[in-house]
C-alpha cells in the first residue's frame, strides 16, 4: 500500500487520528511516521509548553563536544556524538521515550551478557511490587509497576 501522506513510498504501518470523536487510520511509510511523530511532538510542546526548556534554554542547550543542539536532536532524531547522550542525557529522555517507549537498556553490554544493573533493578522492583501487593499498598504497587514497565520497555 502507498503511503497516504507522501503518496510516494510504501506504507509500513498506520497512525490513528481522532477528529470530532471519529477515529480514522492513515497508512504511512517510516519517514512520514517519523515526521508525524516530530510534528506531534512540537505541537505538544507549543500547546502545553511540555518542553519549555526546549524553547528557551533548549535552543541554547547543546553538546559541548560536537555542538549538536537539543532542538536539532528533537527535530531529526539524530544525535551528533556519543557525548551528546551524556551531556544531554536527561533532556533527550522524553524524545527517546516517545520513540522507544523505554528509557533504559536491558540488553547485552561490552563486558558481559546482560546489562547487570537494570536486570538487578528490575528484580529488586519486582520483589518490592510483590511485597506492596501483599500488603495491599496499591498506590505504591502502581508506581512500582509503572517503573518496571518503563525499564522493560512499555510492556509487563
Amino acid at each position: 500500500m502507498i503511503c497516504q501522506r507522501c503518496k510516494k513510498r510504501e506504507a509500513t504501518g498506520y497512525m490513528e487520528k481522532t477528529v470530532d470523536g471519529v477515529k480514522t487510520r492513515v497508512y504511512v511509510c517510516p519517514e512520514c511516521f517519523k515526521q508525524a511523530q516530530m510534528e506531534m511532538f512540537s505541537s505538544l510542546e507549543d500547546d502545553f509548553g511540555l518542553f519549555s526548556g526546549l524553547t528557551e534554554q533548549g535552543s541554547r542547550a547543546k553538546c559541548s563536544k560536537c555542538g549538536t543542539t537539543l532542538r536539532e536532536i528533537s527535530e531529526t532524531c539524530f544525535v551528533g556524538c556519543p557525548y551528546c547522550y551524556k551531556e544531554l542525557g536527561e533532556q533527550i529522555k522524553p524524545i527517546v521515550r516517545n520513540i522507544q517507549s523505554a528509557v533504559m537498556h536491558i540488553g547485552s553490554s561490552p563486558d558481559g551478557e546482560q546489562n547487570e544493573n537494570s536486570i538487578n533493578e528490575i528484580a529488586e522492583l519486582e520483589e518490592q511490587l510483590h511485597r506492596a501487593a501483599a500488603a495491599e499498598n496499591y498506590e505504591q504497587a502502581l508506581k512500582l509497576q509503572a517503573r518496571i514497565r518503563e525499564l522493560k520497555g512499555g510492556e509487563l
Binding site: 517519523k34 536532536i73 532524531c77 539524530f78 544525535v79 556519543p82 547522550y85 551524556k86 542525557g89 533527550i92 524524545i95 527517546v96 520513540i99 522507544q100 523505554a102 528509557v103 533504559m104 537498556h105 540488553g107 553490554s109 546489562n115 544493573n117
Partner: peptide
C-alpha cells in the same frame, strides 16, 4: 552507556 546501551547516531537504534 549504562542507561542508553550502545550509542547510535539515530535514536531509533539506541540500546
Amino acid at each position: 552507556d549504562q542507561n542508553y546501551g550502545y550509542l547510535t547516531s539515530c535514536l531509533t537504534n539506541v540500546g
